[in-house]
Design a protein around this nucleic acid. Structure first.
Lengths: 229, 229
DNA sequence: TGGAATAATATTGTCGACAATATCGTGGAG
DNA sequence: CTCCACGATATTGTCGACAATATTATTCCA
């Protein structure tokens, strides 16, 4: 039942001493993939040992991630992965609902033929995952599907906001697809949205996306309350 | 015609050497109030002289602001205020439309009696500003009005996202209210929304807010094209 | 005079040493 | 045995010096 994290590519970092931005990426990825869990302390020396970066660069990276809202830094107590309460998750989903809703509509309106084709292909892959019961792969492709919608809508600002919002709930997302039922209904949502988009029904796509995200939260909170029984 | 910047409170900073976060706030405010204009280089020594902070703290602050997307840092060329192209402004407004739309709806649904009363009071003040033709004050209260909607809706995540989005366009917002016509229509929008909210029409409030934000962008882009004639 | 090479200056990047604070462990008093 | 005080250790914060790079000024030659 516990979600097997996807292998992060070839960390610790290669021979050359990494840049501050690279260290930030390194930490960010480990948070996304669940190696660094919410609340976990990020001790500078540990990161130095694992990345080979100098302390200055590690500290810079942490400051940057603080600005991104990924880690919290307390005076003389260091950095830790910011943890989201269930209430925060609810708020994040409400924001996602708004932003991804707009994106779905704009995708229907403005997306290039190329992106539309990619969406169709991706949907076919997702259908296959459902049939073959591959929740991990589904979770990965699901992320790609949502990203494609957002990026294909042509709004980089929204894309960045969503990337930020998604980090703290990335793991939870995967977890939810271990429920077969949830996986099937989520995919049905996807397919319906693809149809609406291809039919050029922007408003319909937006409404569908909002319902889809809302449903995602309900599943999540169900898992949460199950977990704390 | 040029917008008189609101006096930032009592900077340079007080006697005690400021903290990294304080320096970040100091810079952020100066960007918001237009003292630091987009593209302007932020030389470390200058900030040190003006704030009394140590170099380490200034650099930390800049890294943090980079994470927030407010400044850009180039290797060996330092930090500069990130400038938004007209296309980025368009994208920002689209994101605002989505987020503030949701907020208006949620305000109608969930806001406390206290916040509702504050909204009514604030609206009365705005009406007064329109009658007395005080565009600067209107701009300030307009900001408060929008903030009240968002915060009253009870979603801190959205509030933070919007705060981030608004910084690069803060100055432009003020500028737009020097057009009497724009000021009047904007305030009419506000009043209509207050009515919808008080009537409990959440969906109506959301739709109205989306139209309002969209109209704001159209005015802005008109100013922009005027400016570059 | 114009322009390219070069020197001088300004600015940012990096590192190491030390100070400040928190955390953990130990021992003693009740 | 528990709790508190105190010291030892670990961790983070701060500063200054110097290196690397960019920017500006100067010189020299065609």
């Amino acid at each position: 039942m516990s979600p097997t994290p996807i292998d992060p590519p070839a960390l610790p970092l290669p021979g050359t001493a990494p840049n501050g931005t690279e260290v930030a990426n390194w930490i960010r990825q480990r948070i996304r993939t669940g190696r660094f869990v919410p609340g976990q302390r990020l001790v500078e020396v540990d990161i130095i040992r694992q990345t080979g970066a100098s302390r200055t660069k590690v500290r810079e990276a942490l400051k940057r991630l603080e600005g991104e809202g990924l880690v919290a830094i307390e005076e003389f107590r260091g950095a830790s992965v910011r943890s989201a309460t269930i209430e925060e998750v609810r708020q994040i989903y409400r924001a996602r609902m708004a932003l991804e809703g707009i994106s779905a509509g704009d995708f229907a309106r403005y997306a290039s033929a190329q992106d539309r084709q990619r969406l169709i292909d991706l949907q076919a892959e997702l259908d296959l995952c459902v049939e073959q019961r591959l929740p991990d792969k589904f979770g990965r492709l699901n992320g790609e599907w949502h990203r494609l919608i957002v990026e294909g809508s042509g709004n980089l600002q929204i894309a960045e906001l969503l990337q930020r919002l998604n980090v703290p709930i990335h793991r939870l997302l995967f977890e939810s697809f271990y429920d077969e039922q949830r996986l099937r209904t989520a995919n049905a949502d996807h397919r319906a949205m693809v149809d609406l988009i291809m039919a050029g029904d922007a408003d319909g796509a937006e409404a569908a996306m909002r319902r889809h995200v809302e449903a995602g939260f309900h599943t999540l909170s169900a898992i949460e309350s199950e977990f704390y029984r």
